[in-house]
Simulated scan of single mutants.
Amino acid sequence: MKPAERRRARQFAVQAVYQWQITQAGVTQIVDQFAVDQDMSKADVPYFKELLMGVVKNADALDDKLSPYLSRKIDDVDMVDLAVLRLAMFELTFRTDVPHKVVLNEAIELAKDFATDESYKFVNGVLDKALRSLKLREDIAK
């Protein structure tokens, strides 16, 4: 696994999750479209598929995990921000092999790449609160 390939996979995954949120198209259809429309040769394609499928399959549970840390209802969150947050929460929840700092840094970069100028601050704030709470729960469980 090369970090640059993972980063590229996350970039494609955010775009694909956003597309799914807007169109509700099937995951297979979106994956097939990306294979045709995008140059995925420098991306970790299996990771891209895992992220997309994982977010779509677990969207409600991810939203439930995110909601306590949002300053507004989930339906009022910008769709690009929501795609970034869902992707990050999926990695935090289901990909425990990926360090929390990596997930947070990647989410901030994705927000800078795809969302509004101030979105990265919102994403950082939400994920920072979530990570503190998750870490607190881990410490209590020990």
Rank of each mutant, 00 (worst) to 15 (best):
K2F: 11
P3V: 09
A4N: 14
R6S: 06
R7Y: 04
R7F: 13
Q11L: 13
Q11V: 05
Q11N: 07
Q11Y: 05
F12R: 00
A13I: 07
A13C: 10
Q15R: 15
A16P: 11
A16K: 05
A16F: 05
A16S: 08
V17F: 01
Y18R: 03
Q19V: 15
I22D: 08
T23Y: 12
A25C: 13
A25S: 05
V27L: 00
V27K: 06
T28W: 11
T28C: 04
Q29R: 10
I30R: 01
V31F: 07
V31W: 11
A35Y: 12
V36A: 00
D39T: 10
M40E: 02
K42Y: 08
K42F: 01
A43S: 13
Y47N: 10
F48S: 03
F48C: 03
E50N: 08
E50R: 09
L52R: 03
L52C: 02
M53W: 07
M53K: 15
V55Y: 05
V56D: 01
N58V: 02
N58S: 09
N58F: 05
A59E: 12
D60T: 15
A61V: 14
A61C: 11
L62M: 05
L62A: 06
D63S: 13
D63N: 06
D63Q: 09
D64T: 09
L66W: 10
S67W: 07
S67Y: 11
S67C: 12
P68Q: 01
Y69A: 00
Y69S: 02
Y69N: 03
S71N: 08
R72F: 02
R72Y: 06
K73W: 04
D75I: 13
D76Q: 15
D76C: 03
D78N: 14
M79K: 07
D81C: 06
L82N: 08
A83V: 02
L85T: 07
L85W: 05
R86E: 09
L87E: 11
A88W: 07
L92R: 01
T96C: 11
P99M: 08
V102Y: 01
L104K: 04
N105G: 06
E106M: 10
E106P: 03
E106T: 15
I108H: 03
E109K: 12
E109T: 15
E109W: 14
E109I: 14
F114R: 03
F114M: 05
F114K: 00
A115M: 01
A115C: 10
T116V: 11
D117Q: 15
D117Y: 12
E118A: 15
Y120K: 01
Y120W: 13
Y120H: 12
F122E: 00
V123L: 07
V123T: 07
V123P: 03
V123I: 15
N124I: 02
N124P: 04
G125F: 02
G125R: 08
V126G: 00
L127M: 12
L127A: 02
D128Y: 02
D128W: 02
A130D: 01
L131V: 05
L131I: 05
R132L: 10
K135L: 14
K135S: 12
K135E: 10
K135D: 12
L136H: 11
L136S: 10
L136G: 09
E138A: 04
E138N: 06
E138G: 03
E138H: 02
E138Q: 13
D139S: 14
I140E: 14
I140K: 08
I140A: 04
A141F: 11
A141S: 15
K142C: 12
K142L: 14
